[in-house]
Design a protein around this nucleic acid. Structure first.
Lengths: 210, 210
DNA sequence: TAGATTGTTAATCGATTAACAATC
DNA sequence: TAGATTGTTAATCGATTAACAATC
């Protein structure tokens, strides 16, 4: 279970999908599944599934397959879903508000501690009981509270600046919605969601006729 | 310029980044750039950049490099940014509203024509002058209006159903924000944005200490 | 022309798939 | 035991990098 040798990014990017499908199986009270059956549902080859799961240690059993709930909890482990994460949102515009309002992340263990913005019209407002604070207070807030993940929802032009403040105050995870590539030290992890990039990929696919 | 032989998905996923960086260069009135210089900015190897750009035909020049504005407009071409796309949003919840309110997509040529929801409290409201309509009216609307892209922002459970209505009425592009894998015919393209998957990847990276 | 830089081929690297012995 | 299915090695495939001749 602590094999964890060299998990490639290709494998990591598939893990949430395993998590999702195994969660569904749990809901349907399925208690065992073979790589072949899972393959038919999830769309990866059976070979790839066995290969992927073996990165983490052997929790399959020859002749039997995988125990769903055991596998599920192992995937949760690998994804780090066993602990709670404290998050802050910076930027209470469209995207910031949407994320703040969405309760699904809490269920996964991501707890929103505060929201920051520069706009005086937004400061003081509340989203789901969380007050939007002045961004000037961000450094102090980070010093007083241990925050695991900063969610950057400010315009591109300010994103690196905000990121620097987060990093300087010990935040190790950045979830970046600004369409820029942030520069961070090695021990800080950035995962970017670039909505317009995604939309451009779609328009490219629509034109890529062959 | 019409080489377009076998553009792999790996290349397509890099194109929006080229688009972004070349746009910046345009703004700064840079008119030529070598693969080596671009490499330093964008973070791909010079070799990869030349390899990528060659998929589409040769618009570089030995001993000189690439003409920025020519390259930029070629990338726009490949991304399909030369035409306008008509879009509809289905689901006027957190994410649906955020996307509807965001004006950046219009600038790229994606015009929001309508928004649909089931919730009677939302129907009739306006976002940026666009009225939220009853989802029951969606099929008729799609018959009366040619829509290129459907943006699915409904809960997972309803996503495939909504997708089917879109596909049945000729929509060829689906931008899917629901955390499910949609089933569509081959001629329909789906690009998914799975926010919770992205967040899980971040939490995995934060735990993947080595 | 000489220097620079591409286009393109060849070499390497990594990820996926196939195969099968191990074993439940 | 016989059948099933994994874990794991080997083969294949694709993507990235290196190298260099072509040429501006």
């Amino acid at each position: 279970m602590d094999k964890k040798k060299n998990i490639s990014m290709a494998v990591i990017r598939r893990l949430p999908k395993y998590h999702r499908y195994l969660g569904d199986l749990m809901k349907n009270d399925v208690d065992r599944i073979s790589s072949k059956e899972l393959s038919e549902k999830i769309g990866f080859t059976a070979s790839q599934i066995r290969q992927d799961l073996n990165c983490f240690g052997d929790f399959g059993q020859q002749g039997y397959g995988y125990n769903v709930s055991e596998l599920y909890s192992q995937i949760c482990n690998i994804l780090g879903l066993v602990k709670l994460y404290k998050t802050v949102i910076i930027g209470a515009g469209n995207i910031g508000q949407a994320i703040a309002n969405y309760t699904g992340f809490e269920k996964l263990g991501f707890e929103l501690k505060s929201i920051f913005d520069v706009n005086p019209k937004l400061i003081g407002l509340r989203i789901r009981d969380i007050e939007i604070k002045d961004i000037d207070y961000l450094p102090d807030f980070l010093k007083e509270n241990t925050i695991d993940i900063g969610i950057i929802c400010v315009p591109s032009i300010n994103a690196q600046k905000v990121c620097d403040i987060l990093v300087k105050n010990g935040v190790k995870g950045i979830w970046n919605f600004a369409p820029v590539d942030l520069v961070v030290p090695d021990d800080v992890k950035v995962e970017g969601v670039h909505l317009s990039d995604s939309l451009l990929i779609l328009s490219c696919l629509l034109n890529d006729m062959e």
